[in-house]
Each structure stands twice: as C-alpha cells, then as structure tokens.
Simulated scan of single mutants.
Amino acid sequence: MTEQELINKQKEYGDSRFAVTRSGKFFCAYGCGAFALARATGYRVMRRPRKGGHSVLTTGFPESRLANVLEQIAACGGEIVVQETDCFVFAGIDGSEDDGLVSEQKPPKEHKDTGIRKDKATLRERIMSFDLSRSTPMEAMLFLDTLQKQIKENTV
C-alpha cells in the first residue's frame, strides 16, 4: 500500500479505530492513528513535508517492538480489533490532534557565514549536529539513509 492509500484507510476508520501498517521494517500510523499510538507509547508524532506543499502526520516503530507496543496499547485501555502479519487495528485510545505531541521536521538551515544549506554541509557537521538521544529509531534510520546518499553523490 502506498502512503496515500494508508492515509485514506485511516480516514475510513474515522477517529475511533486506528490502522497501523508495516512499511519495510517499521510499523507506521497516520493522522489520528498517529496521535492515538503516540499517547499509548510515548513516541513523537512527526509532521513530514511532502511534495506539493502539504505535510503528513505520522509516527512509527521498528517491527522488533511490535509485541511491546501491543502491550502498551492494552495497558492504556486500548484494544486490538484486528491483527494480521502486516497490520493491526486498535481502538479505545484518544486520537484527537494535540500540537504538544507533534515534532516538526525542520527545513535545512543555512550556515551564517557561507549561506550554504545544511544539506550541503560537511558530513562531519551533519553527524555532530544530529541529536541521537532525542530521535526515534525511524528518524535515525532516515538520517543514516540521507548520509549514505550524500556520500554516494560526493564520490560518484
């Protein structure tokens, strides 16, 4: 399923049931499902910019944490309505939007003295400025992917 299909599936469920689906080695929730999952687990909801100027609210966790997340949902009074290999649906947790749970993905910054965008800065600067202690596993994985692409672009 594409991201947009997953978002549409969540909209069909409304704000009482929440879809969490596998995306590679992670499980992700969107929209009100992201807020409900964040309330159960303590994970942050990320506002991810997309092409066309819109953004998507999402949260996720690595597949290795699935059993723990299911326990956290139950501990918060939630219930697993459907569970399959690549997705599950849960209910019973507040999915209302709360800006306090959202972390903005910041646009690349420019260096004060050179005007060079941060995504063009040296790898060392990028690595040193990444706050691993405040990042989710998904954010760390995406950061590593970005670094690998930058290395490939600079050496090819």
Rank of each mutant, 00 (worst) to 15 (best):
N68D: 15
R124W: 07
T59F: 04
Q105K: 09
F88L: 10
G42K: 06
R124S: 12
G14L: 08
G92L: 06
E71K: 14
A121D: 12
R47Q: 08
C28N: 11
F61A: 09
S96H: 09
D86E: 06
D86G: 11
I116Q: 14
G42S: 09
A40C: 14
M46C: 12
D94P: 07
Q83T: 06
F27I: 06
D15W: 00
V82Y: 10
R44L: 04
R124Y: 07
T41L: 05
G24E: 04
G53F: 06
F18T: 02
L57M: 14
I116K: 15
K11G: 06
K120V: 00
A40M: 06
N8K: 15
E63D: 15
H54R: 14
G115R: 05
S96L: 05
V56Y: 06
P62T: 13
H111R: 14
A121E: 12
Q72T: 05
A75E: 07
S96D: 07
S16L: 10
T122R: 12
Q105E: 12
P108V: 11
G115A: 05
G42F: 04
C32K: 05
E84T: 08
M128G: 05
I127L: 13
M128T: 02
I73F: 00
N68T: 15
G77V: 04
Q72M: 11
S23A: 15
T58D: 11
